[in-house]
């Protein structure tokens, strides 16, 4: 059975709205302009929270997958799928904003940066995972198979990151490290936006979870009725 949490959802959605408004205000009016990069640096305030929460989502897929194997409960399977969806959305947006940042800052759309490359590979892995889910592969054993994929995908993350870092260290990169010194106002802006995107993330995941959970209940009920009428 799927429990739903409408009050929590309302809370997160409201928090997302308030925080996002505050975050937008901070980005455009509060945070000072960066000296060398100018206004383009403001992409950072979207990019960082998106990247951060996509990794939280992928870790969530892993944790939910472990719970599927452990408890066998259907709700964890649904949650894993929902988190993977949110993770692919967020990592996709993080990649796009990162690429635009790269074009503006380093004059190239794509460069071999370990973090960037790791995010791209993760995007591929979890997109594939979603395609497999959508194809409903595995039949009755499907939930277990999806759980195994969810675990294997996450186990791969550190290896991908290490290999991406090693790969680059022999090929010296053209770019200098990201500007280290952020002013205190910038940090405040970063934190507000991180929280805002976190609230939005939670609201999206919860809303989708409710929908997906309900859909499964309805399908199960339809099957039951069909079986009854056939008898």
């Amino acid at each position: 059975m799927f429990r739903i949490y409408p009050k929590t959802l309302t809370l997160f959605a409201a928090a997302a709205m308030v925080l996002m408004a505050a975050g937008q205000y901070a980005i455009w009016f509060y945070a000072p302009e960066e000296m060398t990069m100018g206004p383009v640096q403001k992409i950072f305030y979207f990019h960082l929270p998106l990247a951060w929460w996509c990794f939280v989502a992928f870790f969530g897929v892993f944790a939910a997958s472990v719970m599927v194997l452990w408890t066998g409960k259907e709700k964890w399977d649904v949650l894993a799928g929902v988190l993977a969806e949110a993770g692919v959305l967020f990592s996709g947006l993080a990649l796009i904003t990162g690429s635009i940042w790269g074009r503006a800052a380093w004059n190239t759309w794509w460069t071999w940066d370990p973090r960037l490359s790791t995010t791209l590979v993760m995007w591929f892995v979890y997109s594939g995972y979603l395609v497999l889910r959508a194809a409903d592969a595995g039949g009755a054993k499907g939930a277990r198979m999806r759980a195994v994929l969810g675990i294997v995908a996450f186990v791969d993350v550190p290896l991908v990151f290490l290999s991406a870092r090693l790969w680059r260290s022999i090929h010296p990169a053209v770019l200098a490290s990201r500007s280290g010194g952020l002013e205190p106002e910038m940090w405040t802006t970063v934190w507000i936006n991180l929280l805002a995107w976190g609230a939005l993330f939670a609201a999206i995941v919860l809303a989708r979870y409710h929908g997906a959970g309900f859909a499964r209940r309805v399908e199960a009920a339809l099957v039951r009725i069909q079986e009854k009428t056939l008898q």
């Binding site: 992409i43 989708r208 997906a212 309900f214």
Partner: peptide, 27 residues
């Protein structure tokens, strides 16, 4: 570039919310 990045982000989020709405109408 900042403008393009903004458009992309909000299109992405908006698109996903539309997808959610569609799923709910199917439901």
């Amino acid at each position: 570039y900042l403008f393009i990045a903004n458009v992309c982000v909000w299109l992405g989020v908006g698109g996903y919310v539309l997808f959610l709405a569609r799923q709910h109408s199917v439901l």
